[in-house]
Design a protein around this nucleic acid. Sequence first.
RNA 1: CGGGAAGUAGCGCAGCCUGGUAGCGCAACUGCCUUGGGAGCAGUGGGUCGGAGGUUCAAAUCCUCUCUUCCCGACCA
Length: 491
Amino acid sequence: MGMAERKHALNVKRSEDFSAWYQAVIQGAELAENASVRGCMVIKPYGFAIWERVQRLLDDKFKELGHVNAYFPMFIPVDLFEKEAEHVAGFAKEMAIVTHHRLEQQNGKLVPAGELETPLAVRPTSELIIGESMARWVKSYRDLPVLVNQWCNVVRWEMRTRMFLRTAEFLWQEGHTAHETEAEARAEATQMHEVYRWFILDVLKMFGIPGKKPDYDRFAGAVDTYTIECMMQDGKALQAATSHYLGQNFAKAVGIEFQGRDGSLNYAHTTSWGISTRIIGGLIMSHSDDDGLNLPSAVAPYHIIMIPMLKADNSQAVLDYCNKIKASLPRDVRAFLDTREFSPQNKKWDYVRKGVPLILEIGSNEVKSESVYFTKRLFLEKQSMSLNEFAKSVEQLIAAHDEMLKTHCEEACEKRINRDVSSLYEMRDFFRSNQNGFVIAKWAGKNDKLELLDDMSISIRCIPSLQSGAPGRCVLTGEEAATDAVFAKSD
RNA sequence: CGGGAAGUAGCGCAGCCUGGUAGCGCAACUGCCUUGGGAGCAGUGGGUCGGAGGUUCAAAUCCUCUCUUCCCGACCA
C-alpha cells in the first residue's frame, strides 16, 4: 500500500516471535518481573490487581455455591505422601523439600544445621493435608458434605519455567470437598467444571473447550479429571483450570470415614478443583496484540483512564473537568485520573500497553465543549462524544469492548479448528503446515498415548463435555470410535 | 535434567575477537522552545559491566567455577 506502518507500543511482533512478544507484553504492562530466585516471579501491583479481580469473582461464586474458605499448612510431612502411591509418583519429581530448621555461621557462611527428623514437603497441592483434617472432622453422614476452599501459594520445582504459565511458586485456589455418595461428588466436580467454563469463557472472554482428560493424563490419584483447554494466539493449547473426581482414593489414604444412614462405615468420595495465576498468562496469550495487553472489563483494574492535557493557563479547569467526568460516571465504572507529571503521550501509550479499555485525553477543547475525547484500546479507534452522552453510554461502551474482545478471540480460534482430519498422518500434516490449532477427531478411547504424534508434541487435550460444531472424523481406521477428542500442541 | 544462546544505566543494545579512562538510542532530570498529540534544541544525572576466583603492571574484554534468563527437547498447572 506504500503507507508507513504504524509504530506499535511493543518492540516485538506477535507474529514474528510469539514467546518474546509474550514477555514484552508482561514487561510493557508492568504485570510481573523475574525474581532473583530461580523460576520465581514478582507479581507487580498492576498484575496483582488483575489477580485480585479473579479472586473476588471466583470467591463470590464459590461461596454462592456453599463453599467456605479455610487455611492449611504449606508444609506437609513427606511420609503423608507415602499414603497415596499414584499421587506421590505424580509429584515426587517436582517437590521442594525442607530438611533443616536452623542456620549456623561457618567460616562466614550461613549453612543449614538442625536436620529435621521428618523432611517436610512444601505443598505442591493439598489433597493429603486437607484430607487429614477432613478425616478428623467427619464422623457421620451428617458431617457431609465438607466444602472447603483455600487461596494460597504452592511450589512445584519445574525444570523449565515461564512467567505466569509455569513458575516454581504460584498462587492459586484449591477447593476440596468430601461427600457421602459418588453421585454427589461427581456432581460437585462437574459443577465446578462448569464454574470454570463460565469464568474463563464468559467472564474472561477466552476461547476454550471444556472436557475430560484421557485416562493417561489424569491428575495423579484422580478417577476423572475435567479441564478447560484454551487456545492461545499461537494455536497451542493451555490447560486453564481443572476439577477432579477423586473417588475414594484419598479418603482411603487418609481415613475420611463416616457412619452412614444404615449404620455401616463408609469412605467419603472427594473432589478437588483449582485455578492458578497461570490464567493471567492465558489472558495475555488470548487477547493481547502488538500494542500490549487487552483486558476483559471484569478483571481490568481500570475501565477508564483520564489523561489531562495540561498547559500553564488551563490546568485547574482541566482537572476540575476531569473530576466532573468521573463524578458523572456510574459507580461500578472504575475510572482513574492520572495526574502524574509525565508527558501525556507517554502516559497514553503506557495505558495502551496496560490494556485499559477506554483511554480519555482531556484538554481545553473538551472543557469548552463539555465533551470527551477517547481511544478505544482494542483497535485504537478514536472518538469524541458529549459528556452527557458518554456518561449515559459508558456502560454500553464497556460492554461493546467485551463483546468485541470475545468475538475477535473466538473467530480467530474457530478458524484454527480442523474437523476434517481422517488419519493420524493427515493430522501430522495439518500441524506441520498450519502453525498449530486444534484438531477435533474421533478417538477410539484407548488409554495408550498415540505414539505417532509424540514426536510432534501433539497430545489429546480433552474429550469435549459439550458437543459444539460438527463431529470430527475417525483417525484410527478399523477402530470402534466412540467420542470426539481435541488434539493440539501445548507448551 | 540434556542441547544451544545470553547477562554492560529503567528499557533496547554496541564495546569483547586483538586487555589500556564505560559508550549509543529511548526513558529520566534542568533550561529554552513548542502546543490536539508517542515534538524539537541544548545541557545534566545515572553503571562496583550477574557473582566469585584466577592470569596480568593493567580485565567488561582472557581462563575456571557459579548464579540467573531465554530458546529447542523431556516433565508438568
